[in-house]
Design a protein around this nucleic acid. Structure first.
Lengths: 296, 296
DNA sequence: ACTCGTTACGAGATTCGTAATTATG
DNA sequence: CATAATTACGAATCTCGTAACGAGT
């Protein structure tokens, strides 16, 4: 018998309804049924009298409920106390972001510091050419990445930023003087090849290989870091789509950022290794969820 | 955090030694290390100060230990109380045996009734042609079967009987007057074919297809039940090896049982579906383990 | 150098969800 | 007949053990 089973038992004892219990615990109704009958089998005694219309605790179940409720409260209190001690001790979270995005996240960081007085956030830089490695090695605790992300070992948390996209073009580029760009303008312009460090579906969502109308967008010379990309763009070798935020804090010589007016809004979410789990990570995720995304 | 983790934490808090903790809980040392570091990660605080020479509780760990110990005691007490209520209510165990083996098991059944006043054992008959179906359908709660048994869904419990084997032969058979038989005598005699209801490795362990010296033992006419087998033997169509117990309570007309002097001792063990689990099953298994096997 | 704790990784067990089934008012 | 509980079964997750490694005396 594990704590999860106990939780299911206690919730059902309260709700007296399998469906509602399942809903409250965010599991399937079948799971509740399975958990309860396993306990009853194991104990050799019915804990609930039930038909498909009525669920009621048996006397044995009633007594068990009292004991287990008390125990569960003790455990939760004890763990909470221990966690609180950890919170006081504090922890520094390494948060990977693109370029200067950390500056935009200041409201989040401030709220985090309020909720977690001992905690701190340190920013690390990440690149589109390699968005996950630092997370997977443990160098970063969390990253802020554009969606969609579908990695089995990573958890996607709340969105912290939303914003548009810009196209980086050389100042000499014919598009430069238009002041704005469309996804169709990408056609027949080379875009930077970010290399094999990032999954194709993810790169494609930012740097498409086809325009919405289906025209090809060739992948041009390779580059890994933000500045390498901008060098290539400045030299006129290619254009490159980026998050709007890249334009906000950079004035690279010879490069112009044009808003892409017809690209869907970009969502940037907190991401972390599913197996990593610490109060700091949870607190930052909760804080971000409560704060909601910051619009650029 | 699950109860298992809490148990590991509490045991380590007591032993202050990973190896001994692992031994006490019958898990690997690695598991203890994993469980503890998972908890510490999750809580964000060290519970033990440890080097490879010394393990000590931190203040946070000391406090947590008190809370969790109390909670675990409550849970254990509550579950024990509920189980005790079930024991009083009693349960009838359907125990599948071959022929009259149930009679030999009376000491076990008596001991079981003593330990489990509300419980009872009902015997059901099983056949070598189909040893597992009644278990799998739930018609029987446990079966007494000869070893070896290697079924992924079944658990093999303590041995309850040990004994020799006999060869059933027709009274007219040349062997009959010898009064004893050897496995080599099986060569060139047909033995009953029990059909496809039992796995070959298991049938083979009782009804071999080769003698120890490698001579063939042909599988003869098919039969399913004990009496069908004896009919075929009586008619002289074949011989058939059986557990010694079959000879003890049967005097079938026209059949003689000859002890097989060179066959290894047979072990008969309690067997049940691994997923089935009830106090009655556990009590019977424990009782059998404590009593030890009954020698025929 | 030896003991003891940790990490990496694969196998096995367990949980869990989906969908079909059964039961009840 | 509609609602709610149960059962069957496959997928995904998690536990756990083995083995190699690292740290400390």
């Amino acid at each position: 018998m594990e704590l999860r089973d106990i939780e299911i038992f206690l919730t059902l004892a309260e709700e007296l309804h399998f469906g509602r219990t399942a809903e409250r615990l965010r599991v399937s109704q079948a799971r509740v049924s399975q958990a309860i009958s396993k306990q009853e089998r194991r104990l050799g005694v019915a804990l609930f009298d039930r038909t498909s219309r009525r669920v009621a605790l048996t006397p044995v179940g009633r007594r068990l409920r009292e004991d287990l409720q008390q125990a569960l409260d003790l455990i939760k209190a004890g763990l909470a106390r221990a966690e609180a001690a950890g919170l006081r001790a504090g922890q520094t979270l390494r948060l990977g972001v693109f370029g200067h995005a950390g500056h935009e996240l200041r409201p989040l960081v401030d709220a985090f510091r309020t909720r977690y007085p001992g905690g701190d956030v340190q920013f690390g830089e990440i690149y589109g050419s390699d968005p996950f490695t630092a997370l997977r090695t443990g160098e970063h605790d969390m990253n802020v990445l554009w969606l969609p992300i579908a990695e089995p070992d990573l958890t996607v948390g709340p969105t912290v930023l939303t914003g548009g996209r810009v196209l980086a073009v050389s100042a000499d580029h014919p598009l430069a003087e238009r002041g704005t760009a469309s996804l169709e303008d990408l056609a027949d312009n080379h875009v930077v090849d970010l290399g094999p460090g990032a999954p194709e579906y993810w790169v494609e969502s930012m740097v498409p290989t086809r325009t919405p109308l289906g025209r090809r967008i060739p992948r041009g010379p390779a580059a890994r870091t933000f500045h390498e990309i901008l060098s290539l763009v400045a030299a006129g070798h290619c254009v490159h789509p980026l998050g709007e935020i890249a334009a906000r804090y950079n004035r690279p010589p010879g490069v112009v950022f044009l808003p892409i007016h017809d690209a869907p809004t970009l969502h940037w979410a907190l991401t972390w290794r599913s197996t990593a789990d610490s109060p700091a990570i949870r607190v930052l995720a909760e804080t971000a969820a409560d704060l909601g995304p910051i619009s650029l």
